[in-house]
Computed example of a mutant assay.
Amino acid sequence: MKFSVEVITVPVTDVERALRFYVDQVGFALDVDYSPTGTFRVVQLTPPGSSCSIQIGNGITDAPAGSLRNSYLVVADLEAARRHLLERGVQVSDIRHKTPIAAWDGGFAPGLDPARGDYASFADFSDPDGNRWVLQERGHRKA
């Protein structure tokens, strides 16, 4: 049996504002923008390289706008991803890493994990409604 997460619904107040944020600033691809009535609209967007998309819209969820927390966007180079988002006008937190890494108890220290270990370094940002995304580094290869 295979289960695949393919879509996450992101509750927003203003679909156009969210669409512009995710496409123009974060860099997601617009897959679908479907609105058969004045009360229903679904917009599907996909992060570059992802097999999971997000949906924003009208009439697709009753979750409060801004209530999505800690959905992960995994990147191979956290510094480059953070810099890219900052250049596009996204407010991204400082980078932090797990400490102590061998016996992590929920604590963090500033900056990248010195060993650039998988799943050890993070930064986060929020969309205009306050939905929070976590950037996590995995697969970094030193040149």
Results as ranks from 00 to 15, higher is better:
residue 36 P to Y: 05
residue 88 R to S: 15
residue 30 L to W: 10
residue 61 T to Y: 04
residue 20 R to N: 02
residue 40 F to P: 04
residue 28 F to A: 10
residue 3 F to S: 13
residue 9 T to R: 08
residue 108 F to R: 05
residue 139 G to E: 01
residue 19 L to R: 15
residue 41 R to C: 13
residue 44 Q to N: 07
residue 33 D to P: 08
residue 113 D to E: 02
residue 3 F to D: 13
residue 58 N to R: 06
residue 88 R to L: 04
residue 51 S to A: 15
residue 84 H to R: 15
residue 7 V to Q: 04
residue 78 L to V: 07
residue 46 T to G: 06
residue 69 R to S: 08
residue 114 P to M: 08
residue 128 P to M: 00
residue 5 V to E: 03
residue 75 V to N: 00
residue 45 L to M: 04
residue 47 P to H: 12
residue 104 W to V: 12
residue 30 L to G: 06
residue 34 Y to Q: 09
residue 10 V to S: 08
residue 94 D to M: 03
residue 118 D to I: 00
residue 71 S to A: 14
residue 142 K to E: 04
residue 34 Y to M: 14
residue 58 N to S: 12
residue 20 R to P: 11
residue 143 A to M: 11
residue 85 L to N: 01
residue 40 F to S: 02
residue 65 A to T: 04
residue 46 T to W: 14
residue 113 D to P: 05
residue 128 P to Q: 00
residue 51 S to L: 08
residue 17 R to I: 12
residue 13 T to P: 01
residue 13 T to N: 12
residue 73 L to E: 00
residue 45 L to Q: 02
residue 51 S to Y: 08
residue 22 Y to T: 01
residue 32 V to Y: 10
residue 74 V to R: 11
residue 55 Q to A: 14
residue 8 I to K: 05
residue 82 R to M: 07
residue 26 V to L: 08
residue 137 E to M: 04
residue 10 V to W: 09
residue 133 W to T: 01
residue 135 L to S: 07
residue 139 G to W: 07
residue 31 D to A: 12
residue 81 A to Y: 05
residue 37 T to S: 15
residue 52 C to N: 06
residue 6 E to F: 15
residue 72 Y to S: 10
residue 122 F to Q: 01
residue 94 D to P: 06
